[in-house]
Design a binder for these strands. Structure first.
Lengths: 165, 165
DNA sequence: TATTGTTATACTCTATAACTATA
DNA sequence: TATAGTTATAGAGTATAACAATA
């Protein structure tokens, strides 16, 4: 589990070499394990989608708009658990890049209906390919059955909590 | 899975009510599930340890120092995957609160040996009680066997990656 | 009066470069 | 020259309050 050091011995041998650190109790805590996994998985995701320059939240927003065209900003925020104030710069950038359009709301003139542009659809298609490869890499580590188990356990863990992203 | 809305119908009924958002593909992605779980678990952790005013990283640092007394800052950073520059304000606050002492290094005068103070040990003891209750709450959701499975799957997911906290 | 989108702001976390004092 | 700790800084992510336009 721990990365092997130069001095593989237990500890305290030479004073100037980095000491082996015992993380024993921490690694048995669900919170610590979930956090480490999240950092590792997001790192792999970032590397995997470098080509399309999408961060996890941007990818999630494009996915949600793609599957729910015409959604208002408040709906996306509610679904993904993003503060509406923090959503503005995010959607601004996606619109500036020509991936999303804010169409004026028809029934409610306060709101916008969000849609993917053709460029947004094309980029998301490529992003989904890259994400699938990322997902496959994760599945290699835990097996197909392990992945189903993991998703089930994580969903159960979140159930009843309100926060999302 | 999704929280029930006022208008439980599929969608598009009344234009001013919040629309039901379909997160279907996202929720089947390991990265999204891990992230949502991490946010939910950290939220519960923060609530649980409010009494001792310890955030996850502070708790992890106290645990590591407690189990590896005399560790240098660089060792803690290496073990937990924290940048040494970002560790400074963290350990500063713990020292300012009287939970940790930086003892001058004996063999290497560039470094400090980190130790818990008696107050630090007392607070960590209480923190571990609160953390155990938090852990038990999580275990209620997934069962004892589910917890073991989850830890195993998350460890396998992280194995081979370098990043930590 | 309430809501949509917006601005401003602040606080945390993370990442990098450069400095000092030691080695 | 390399390392331990430090400072400064910049970028994300997240949270709240307040505003204009509209409902």
């Amino acid at each position: 589990m721990r990365k092997a050091r130069k001095s593989a011995g237990q500890q305290g041998a030479s004073p100037e070499a980095p000491r082996d650190v015992d993380l024993a109790p921490l690694t048995s805590f669900v919170g610590y394990a979930v956090r480490r996994a999240q950092v590792a998985v997001f790192g792999d995701f970032l590397d995997s989608l470098r080509e399309v320059e999408l961060r996890p939240a941007q990818f999630a927003v494009l996915m949600v708009i793609s599957h729910n065209p015409g959604l208002r900003q408040a709906d996306v925020c509610g679904g993904l658990g993003i503060q509406k104030a923090n959503f503005v710069p995010l959607i601004n950038e996606l619109e500036f890049r020509g991936l999303v359009v804010r169409e004026p709301g028809v029934a409610d003139r306060r709101s916008y209906a969000l849609h993917l542009t053709p460029e947004g659809r094309t980029l998301l298609h490529r992003a989904r390919e890259l994400q699938a490869a990322h997902e496959a890499r994760l599945t290699e580590r835990i097996g197909k059955g392990g992945r189903i188990q993991l998703l089930d356990l994580l969903h159960k863990l979140v159930d009843g909590h309100e926060r999302k992203i």
